[in-house]
């Protein structure tokens, strides 16, 4: 049982960084959604804000690590011009070409929106702290950005998993 360095980097990019971001989303969203003075005591909000700050900055860092490792380490192997690269294999067969022309083309671009949106949310929660609980409009805007970060990361992650199944990077 062994994995090549390329497979190892692909696992690190998708299964560790990417999956960690997606798994953490539910906790972060629940924390933002329930940050209301009518639902939680002031002491509870303070305790929750600390967890949110740590969690959201960790998510933002993980999202940056995901797109940087994906773009600058894994993607060059994927798009190599030789006939054995994943891109060449997908494009060689009309039945699999759309995995590249639609799936990879979407994934490689849209995934970069996730760290940008996640960083904005982490900054805003850090800036406001417990006061965010009273700011309905601001919290709503941040939740939309947070959902956008999750949605774009999900698209990238889903296509990454499917593409690596059809044409693995070895």
């Amino acid at each position: 049982m062994s994995i090549s360095p390329r497979e190892g980097w692909t696992v690190l990019h998708g299964m560790l960084f990417g999956a960690a971001f997606l798994l953490a989303f539910a906790g972060g969203f629940a924390g933002l959604y329930s940050l209301r003075p009518e639902w939680v005591t002031a002491e509870g909000i303070k305790e929750r804000i600390l967890r949110l700050k740590v969690g959201l900055w960790a998510m933002a860092l993980i999202a940056w690590a995901t797109v940087i490792s994906g773009t600058y380490i894994v993607y060059p192997w994927y798009r190599a011009s030789d006939a054995t690269s994943a891109r060449s294999i997908l494009l060689a067969d009309p039945a699999t070409a759309a995995w590249h022309t639609f799936g990879m083309e979407w994934k490689e671009h849209v995934g970069w929106l996730a760290p940008i949106a996640a960083t904005v949310v982490a900054f805003a929660v850090t800036y406001y702290g417990p006061a965010l609980a009273k700011k309905v409009g601001e919290r709503r805007a941040l939740m939309i950005f947070f959902v956008a970060a999750f949605a774009t990361a999900s698209i990238a992650g889903m296509f990454g998993a499917f593409i690596n199944k059809v044409a693995p990077i070895r």
Binding site: T119, V120, Y127, A131, K135
Partner: peptide, 30 residues
């Protein structure tokens, strides 16, 4: 017990700036 009314009123400009910058970065990618 601490109340939320004790928290300092912070201006919303820095958060608006972050949201607009996030939008600008996204739009530039598109």
């Amino acid at each position: 017990m601490t109340t939320l009314s004790n928290t300092q009123e912070l201006p919303n400009g820095p958060v608006a700036a972050a949201l607009l910058a996030g939008g600008a970065g996204a739009a530039m990618l598109g």
